[in-house]
Design a binder for these strands. Structure first.
Ligand code: SF4
Ligand code: SF4
Lengths: 136, 136
DNA sequence: CATTATTACCACCTTTCGGTAGTAATATAA
DNA sequence: TTATATTACTACCGAAAGGTGGTAATAATG
């Protein structure tokens, strides 16, 4: 019952970037600060850039920074880039062909929790997280 | 944001067993009904037996059945056998050295949800699930 | 006792995830 | 223009999760 490690990394990076918004940060520095394996992080940053969540500047003095306003980057988008958005709609028992009309035994217990999680992800932006103050 | 596939299998089997309580079911039949890979399921059943959640009868006509009263088998125990119990206490960002006193940005949003999930797992027994009626 | 349906055990295979290494491209700065 | 600090790309490596196969042990049934 968890995010993939890569998703965790992505969230941490994005929160860090939001706390140092306007700055341009190299993979080197992010790697040192967040202690995420350098090469792996480098690839992750490219993914985030490709998905349009961060801006890249190449060459010396280059690096990454947030691409949009803090209040327009939602948690679900970050998760979506890595795990795909359907990961949050996924049935807890892994069934694909299922509907609320004919639910299994667990559904009653699980569905309310799942929709709360989803709701949170769809309502939380980096702005809220940034305002919670610094740590990571 | 999900259980491991193996955990899903385990929950499905346990729910099925609870809906056919008192019966003794072979891996063969469970495999056919639940469409879980035979050999993988066989190993899983041994794990569940080893953990004391089900009873084994060896030899011809043998198989598995629940080991205890429906209302004494909790969801968290099933998850615990496969993923370990700490999977539910785990920080959403994968940090190990963390406390509520100095939480990170996400904590405020995540902690309430996590504790609800945990609460559900610790309060739901197979009896409740079985009473929800049959399907799987 | 022989046959058969089952679980037990062990070794291996495949896929996915996390991580590493090296080299090319790019842009800044001296 | 050369050295340097960066990202881009690609291929590979290792560990863990998921899945398969073969054979031995066990017990019921004819
Ligand atoms: S009814 Fe059960 S199987 Fe279907 S989506 Fe809900 S939890 Fe999953
Ligand atoms: S404060 Fe943040 S890092 Fe710590 S347990 Fe909570 S979510 Fe995880």
């Amino acid at each position: 019952m968890r995010f993939s490690k890569t998703t965790e990394y992505a969230i941490r990076v994005m929160i860090y970037l939001s706390q140092h918004n306007t700055q341009r940060l190299s993979v080197q520095s992010l790697h040192k600060i967040l202690r995420i394996p350098y090469k792996y992080l480098a690839r992750l940053m490219r993914q985030l850039a490709h998905a349009g969540l961060v801006t890249v500047t190449q060459g010396k003095e280059g690096g990454y920074s947030l691409n949009r306003e803090l209040n327009s980057i939602y948690l679900y988008q970050i998760v979506g880039v890595i795990e795909g958005l359907d990961s949050m709609d996924r049935c807890i028992l892994g069934f694909s062909e299922c509907n609320d009309a004919f639910p299994c035994s667990l559904h009653t217990s699980w569905e309310p929790l799942r929709s709360r999680i989803k709701e949170m992800m769809y309502n939380t932006t980096l702005l809220e997280l940034q305002q919670q103050g610094e740590k990571i």
